[in-house]
Simulated scan of single mutants.
Amino acid sequence: MKNRNQQTDHRLEDVQADIARVATGIGIGIVAGLVGTAVMTAAQMIEMKFSGRKSSDTPYKAVKKTFGVEAQSKEDKELITNAAHIAYGTTWGVPRGLMAVFGADGAVATTTHFGAVWGTELSLLPAMDVMEPVTTWKPKAIAEDAMFHGVYAIATGITADILAKWLKEAEGNN
């Protein structure tokens, strides 16, 4: 039978291991979110080149409404838009990184992540009055937006899953 000190030491080790896994998941998520954002942005840039569509200023509107930041020029507005887009995508990588580290991976985790990311956009941004509700969009716009968020979720998920797998394999070799 274990004595009290051994039980306390074991619980402390478990807590430390859980903290390390959370920190690892956050780090993996940041990297995966950056990759997903880069891939999504590249897909959007390609689509805009062929369609002639201008980039969205919705991220700027959300930052302006949330933080009261006012762009002084067109360049400032574009900078704020891009920074918000990158920060948002990077941040959304964190839950996917945590899923991968704690064993939720593959298509199920990626689909869950996609639903959370796109669902948040479709509900939060209209509630903030910075975007029209999806019910007013044309079917093509809905399909394109879903596709871009799908590209993001897939790229983020693949990256998170690979990094978590590499880490687990590296731990197994130690």
Rank of each mutant, 00 (worst) to 15 (best):
K2I: 06
K2V: 06
R4Q: 10
N5D: 14
D9K: 11
H10G: 10
R11V: 11
L12W: 07
L12P: 01
E13H: 12
A17D: 09
D18N: 11
I19P: 01
A20V: 08
R21I: 09
V22L: 10
I26P: 00
G27D: 06
G27T: 00
G27H: 08
G29N: 05
I30E: 01
G33E: 02
V35W: 09
V35Q: 03
V35K: 09
T37R: 05
V39C: 01
A42G: 15
A43N: 04
Q44T: 01
M45G: 13
I46W: 13
I46K: 02
I46Q: 02
M48R: 15
M48A: 08
K49I: 10
F50W: 14
G52R: 06
G52I: 00
R53A: 15
R53G: 05
K54T: 12
D57R: 13
D57F: 15
D57C: 07
T58F: 14
T58V: 15
T58L: 15
K61C: 08
A62D: 01
K64A: 05
K65L: 07
F67S: 05
F67A: 08
G68M: 02
G68L: 03
G68Y: 10
G68V: 01
G68C: 00
A71V: 03
Q72H: 11
S73I: 10
K74W: 03
K74A: 14
D76G: 02
